[in-house]
Nucleic acid binder design. Structure first.
Length: 521
DNA sequence: CTAGGGTTAG
């Protein structure tokens, strides 16, 4: 791209809108003489943009430390010369950010590049996506930059933003940061109320920090009036750590405080019993719900979620016949199964190695006019892989694409894993290539872990090189391999090393040490 | 994205 050349030669300096404007003019002048690649009207715009971003940003690959401002500038140029700013609507930007989800550094680079376009401003939802990605990368610098950019744009923190950040903090082992953020919400222009309090409790409970949630609830209950949602969140928290007795206590406390348990409350407990292996208690609870529901007690009458919970719970406990009976019974009771109910039944049959009955249920749901979703395909494909029917699994993968649900990263990962287990590394690597092709579905940490581990079973020198390249690639995307993975790959490279690869091995080794230094920061 | 049901292996 010639117009960018004089620009690249300059020392890097802070992006500057005026300078960019001048460069835009030079750039578009040049393009008017060449035929610029114009996206087809019927091609997927987010996909085109993602491909451009991925093929651009050369120095994002320079060691995991993140890209420089200069990268954002050149990307901004490339974007503005290929796409009209008007076409970069919030919906399109969000969709690109989602597509680049598994390549965090480049997603953030894209976000930053757009900020440099004159007259462009990000929507709150785009800020949320970018914050989510930065927080997942544990990139404090980007988080703070994004927050100050957001403040400068006059956009206060929303509850959604708070939920995202709190969730990431809790997931990173810093639940206290989530609590602190909650306590400082008013500084960010976000209301501290029962809603945001519930979000905080929910985040803590979902990361199994129920005790912390419960004590916070006790100490702050005076300031935020608890509602039914608050109690449901806490009950679910106890259920998640398999403490159904404590969940029942919450239920009692709820009633004592004058709040009526809802159908959601009952479904939470129902699920809790099955989750903690109390199958009989779960079944009795379900019967009780049905009995009380008959007396026109609508907060107890099982709904489609209750039935799905029971079908799944019984099935996982090995009682697939009883599960099937409940499934048939729900229709008789005037409650139609949902796609999730079918998914539960199919999964449960697959787990019992009854793949043929599972496929019969799949056909049954088609004939009843249901449209399978991604989860349906994933459970069926998993079942087939587990039964060693790899070719049929691949067939379903094709089928899901032609039916309009693109395989997800989970689909790819599970099929790749099974190909590798069968010793067919090439088929696994083929699928990796297919994922990256057209930025269809970017590989994640699991993908790399599965494939890199698989590269060791054949003890081939060339496999070690592939493993080495994948480690480099995953670090570039912001994923940290475990220490033993690094060592394993390095050892593999050295042990199998021959003259031919020696230089590459050496370069790689230096690169790894540089990366590790960067990672430590 | 304020709560409940389907995708994860050993």
């Amino acid at each position: 791209m010639p117009p960018i050349l004089p620009f690249c030669g300059e020392p890097l300096c802070r992006p500057n809108a005026h300078r960019l404007l001048v460069l835009f003019r030079i750039h578009s002048l040049h393009l008017s003489f060449n035929s610029a690649p114009i996206p087809q009207a019927n091609t997927d715009l987010p996909s085109l943009i993602s491909i451009l971003v991925i093929n651009h940003s050369p120095t994002a690959a320079s060691g995991g430390a993140g890209a420089s401002d200069g990268d954002a500038e050149t990307l901004a140029l490339a974007l503005s010369s290929s796409f009209s700013i008007l076409s970069l609507s919030p919906a399109i930007v969000d969709s690109v950010l989602k597509r680049l989800w598994n390549d965090g550094p480049r997603a953030l680079l894209f976000f930053r590049a757009l900020l440099l376009l004159p007259g462009f401003s990000h929507a709150p939802s785009s800020f949320d996506h970018a914050l989510d990605i930065a927080a997942r990368l544990r990139d404090r610098r980007s988080i703070h930059l994004l927050l100050s950019d957001r403040r400068r744009a006059g956009l206060p923190l929303s509850h959604r933003t708070f939920a995202i950040l709190a969730e990431r903090f809790a997931a990173a082992g810093k639940p206290d940061s989530a609590v602190r953020l909650f306590l400082s919400l008013h500084h960010h222009g976000c209301r501290q109320d029962t809603n945001s309090f519930n979000i905080l409790l929910d985040v803590l409970c979902k990361t199994r920090r129920v005790r912390k949630a419960a004590s916070l609830f006790r100490s702050l209950n005076g300031r935020f009036r608890a509602d039914a949602v608050t109690y449901n969140i806490l009950a679910d928290g106890w259920c998640r750590v398999k403490r159904t007795a404590a969940a029942l206590d919450v239920l009692k406390e709820m009633v004592d405080s004058g709040l009526e348990p809802t159908l959601t409350t009952h479904n939470i407990l129902l699920k809790g019993f099955f989750r903690s292996g109390q199958v009989n208690e779960g079944w009795d609870f379900f019967l009780q719900m049905k009995r009380r529901g008959k007396k026109d007690d609508s907060c107890c009458r099982p709904d489609v979620i209750s039935y799905t919970t029971v079908v799944h719970g019984l099935g996982l406990a090995g009682q697939t016949e009883k599960a099937r009976k409940v499934f048939d019974e729900m229709i008789a009771h005037g409650c139609l199964p949902s796609v999730a109910t079918y998914n539960a039944l199919i999964q449960v049959l697959c787990k019992k190695n009854e793949i043929h009955s599972a496929l019969k249920v799949f056909d049954e749901m088609l004939s009843r006019g249901y449209t399978p979703n991604v989860t349906t395909y994933n459970v069926v494909i998993r079942g087939l892989c587990h039964a060693g029917e790899m070719e049929r699994a691949m067939g379903f993968m094709e089928a899901m694409r032609s039916e309009g649900s693109e395989p997800t990263v989970q689909t790819y990962n599970l099929v790749i894993r099974h190909w590798c287990e069968e010793g067919e590394m090439e088929k696994g690597l083929d699928l990796l290539g297919k994922m990256k092709d057209e930025a269809r579905c970017l590989p994640n940490l699991d993908t790399y872990n599965v494939l890199i581990s698989a590269m060791f079973v054949r003890r081939r020198p060339e496999d070690m090189l592939v493993a080495g390249r994948m480690v480099v690639e995953m670090v570039e995307k912001g994923y940290l391999p475990r220490k033993f993975m690094f060592n394993k790959v390095l050892n593999g490279l050295l042990v199998t090393g021959n003259q031919c690869f020696a230089r590459e091995i050496l370069r790689m080794q230096e690169r790894f040490t540089r990366m590790r230094r960067n990672i430590r920061l």
